[in-house]
Simulated assay, not measured.
Amino acid sequence: MLFGAAGVSAAAFLTSCTSNDDGDDDNSSQQQQANVSDDKPGKPVTIGFAGPEADHGWLNAINDNARSRAKTYEDVTLDITEGSNDTATQIGQVDSLINKKVDVLVILPADGKAMTQAGLKAMRAGIPVVNLDRIFDDPQAYRCWIGGDNYGMGLNAGRFIGEQLKGKKNAKVVELAGLDNLELTQQRTAGFDDALKNYPNVEKVARQAAEFTVESGQRKMSDLLQAVPEFDAIWNHDDDQGVGVKRAIDQSGRDEFFMVGGAGSKAVMDSIKADDSVIKATVLYPPTMAASAIDLARALGQQKGVSGMAEFEIPASITLYSAVVSKENIDQYLPTGFN
């Protein structure tokens, strides 16, 4: 997304279209290229990174992606905190990074609303903030937001299931959501329901909310299997809780349905690749967003734009696409799977 060749071509095309002669074209192109972020070493940048506790496979992958990306740049020093789900602790960690006078901050808040003041404090101190995924309440609390598309995640899960079942009369699907008090869960369900409206032959007959844990996934899936004697597909919002979901399914001995997961864990991708279970697809919520956040932070620290885009500044927000990974494209996405 950040370094697409198509974007470079588009920028070059725009430059040629807005110039009056060959000389102007060369000058304009040079000016744009001088303003674009690239992989060549530049001004040293210290990036502070504050995220929640890595108590979930996806969150651990977020930290891994940030560390790995930072190591690819000779001019980047990453100062990463231990991570905490306690808001007061995370605020203290951000304060410490501000006091160290890091050049840029990347913050994935444990609670976006509760951490908004921390983002505002950093911005007021002249430290640009890249807000990662869980968004602050106030747009003044960050320079750039980058994150996943929860509504799109549900939408694409629903479309995939609908397409697989469009030739079946009276098809039945069930949904195993995450924590219902989280807005992201509500958005995923809304997207899923909206997608199914385009498939009148498909009916959602049951829904359970789990807690994004293996134990809750197993327990809630067992409840669904007992409550619904027959269905054709299930969408499980989260691949971590999907470990428990699969246990419950294996214990039941049922296989008349297929399952679509969520997030993109390596275990689920391996199962899709092997084609040895009811798991046939997963909808990505890519932890690679943390690597892209490092790219954006580096560009901010060096006062550059984004490679492949004509603008002199990085965007105010970037929403990632929730791709569906199935046996048709598994080899492309397998390296991005997280443990």
Rank of each mutant, 00 (worst) to 15 (best):
D21K: 05
G23F: 04
G23E: 10
D25S: 09
D25R: 14
N27S: 07
Q30K: 08
Q31N: 14
Q31G: 02
Q32C: 15
Q32W: 12
Q33C: 13
Q33E: 15
Q33D: 10
A34Y: 02
N35W: 00
V36G: 11
D38Q: 11
D38K: 00
D38V: 04
D38M: 12
D39F: 14
K40E: 15
P41Y: 06
P41W: 07
K43H: 07
K43G: 09
V45M: 03
V45N: 10
T46L: 02
I47D: 08
F49P: 03
A50K: 01
A50C: 12
G51S: 04
G51D: 03
G51P: 09
G51W: 07
E53Q: 12
E53G: 10
A54P: 13
D55S: 15
H56E: 11
H56Q: 09
G57I: 06
L59N: 13
N60Q: 15
N60R: 12
A61P: 12
I62V: 15
N63F: 15
N63G: 13
D64K: 12
N65P: 10
R69G: 07
R69K: 14
R69T: 11
A70H: 03
A70T: 09
K71Q: 13
T72L: 06
T72W: 00
T72H: 13
Y73L: 04
Y73T: 06
Y73M: 08
E74D: 14
D75Y: 03
D75N: 05
D75K: 06
D75I: 10
V76G: 06
V76D: 05
V76F: 02
T77H: 00
T77D: 06
T77G: 01
D79L: 11
I80T: 04
T81C: 11
T81L: 11
T81F: 00
E82K: 10
E82L: 10
G83F: 06
S84G: 08
D86P: 08
D86F: 03
D86T: 12
T87F: 02
A88K: 06
A88E: 12
T89E: 09
T89D: 11
Q90P: 08
I91E: 13
I91H: 09
I91A: 14
G92Q: 12
G92C: 06
G92P: 13
D95N: 13
S96Y: 01
L97K: 10
I98Q: 01
N99W: 00
N99K: 13
K100R: 14
K101C: 03
K101L: 05
V102N: 04
V102I: 04
V104C: 09
V104Q: 08
V104Y: 07
V106M: 05
V106Y: 07
I107P: 13
L108S: 01
P109R: 01
P109A: 05
A110E: 10
A110R: 00
D111N: 14
G112H: 03
G112W: 05
K113F: 01
A114L: 03
T116P: 10
T116H: 02
T116R: 00
K121P: 11
A122H: 03
A122G: 03
A122M: 04
M123F: 06
M123E: 15
